[in-house]
Computed example of a mutant assay.
Amino acid sequence: MTARIYRPAKTAMQSGKAKCQDWVLEFEPEKPRAIDPMMGYTSSADMNSQIHLRFETRDAAVAYAVRNGLAFRVIEPKESKRRRVAYADNFRYDRRQPWTH
């Protein structure tokens, strides 16, 4: 039973950074999910896959895992690079690409 500690990335539907600042501890699945042959539902007998714990800091999540004797791995977040883009850049005279409609 290995736990993952990570900071979730912003989803495509978000414009802000809500729910992206906390660190999450969740367990990796022990068994693959099974498909019910009659209804086609996906099910799992792994109850630990339902546990998602949120922590304010990485150190708090690591301390929780150590305190409870959990094997864990920390996945460091990748910081996004933000380019400063202005609307006026569309109309510059020294554009690198020609203007097309």
Rank of each mutant, 00 (worst) to 15 (best):
R96N: 09
A71G: 04
E26C: 07
I75L: 07
R4F: 06
A65T: 02
R92H: 11
D59P: 00
T2I: 05
R33V: 06
R82D: 14
F91T: 15
A88K: 15
Q50Y: 11
M47R: 09
V66S: 12
T2V: 04
R67Q: 11
T42D: 02
Q97C: 12
R67Y: 05
A12C: 06
A9K: 07
R84W: 12
R82G: 11
R92S: 15
S43Y: 07
M39T: 15
H101I: 14
M47P: 07
A9G: 06
V66W: 05
I35W: 02
N68Q: 08
R95T: 11
N90W: 14
K81T: 12
A88G: 08
A45Q: 08
P77D: 14
D46G: 03
T57F: 00
R92Q: 12
R95A: 11
Q21W: 08
T42H: 04
V85E: 15
T2Q: 10
Q50C: 02
T11L: 08
P37V: 00
A45D: 09
R7V: 12
H101G: 09
M13N: 13
V24I: 13
A86R: 15
A60Q: 07
F91Q: 14
H52R: 08
Y6A: 09
P8G: 03
Q97N: 15
Q50F: 04
P37M: 01
R7N: 05
N90A: 14
P77H: 10
C20V: 01
F27K: 00
K10Y: 05
R73I: 03
V74R: 00
G40L: 00
P98G: 05
T100S: 09
A60M: 01
A63G: 03
V85D: 12
E56R: 11
M39A: 13
R95H: 11
A18K: 06
P77E: 12
G40F: 01
Y87H: 12
A65Q: 05
R92V: 09
K19L: 07
F55M: 10
K17Y: 13
A12T: 08
E28C: 09
R33W: 01
Y87W: 14
M1K: 03
A88S: 15
D89K: 08
A9P: 00
V66F: 05
L70S: 04
T2C: 01
G16Y: 04
R67C: 01
R84A: 13
P8R: 01
L53P: 06
I75F: 03
G40R: 03
I5K: 06
A71T: 10
Y6M: 09
S49Q: 10
G69R: 06
N90I: 14
S80N: 02
A60F: 00
T57A: 00
R96P: 04
R54Y: 05
Y64C: 04
M1Q: 02
A18H: 03
V66Q: 15
T57S: 10
E56A: 09
E79M: 09
Q97L: 15
P32N: 03
R54T: 09
I35Y: 03
A18S: 06
N48D: 04
K31W: 03
V74Y: 01
V62F: 00
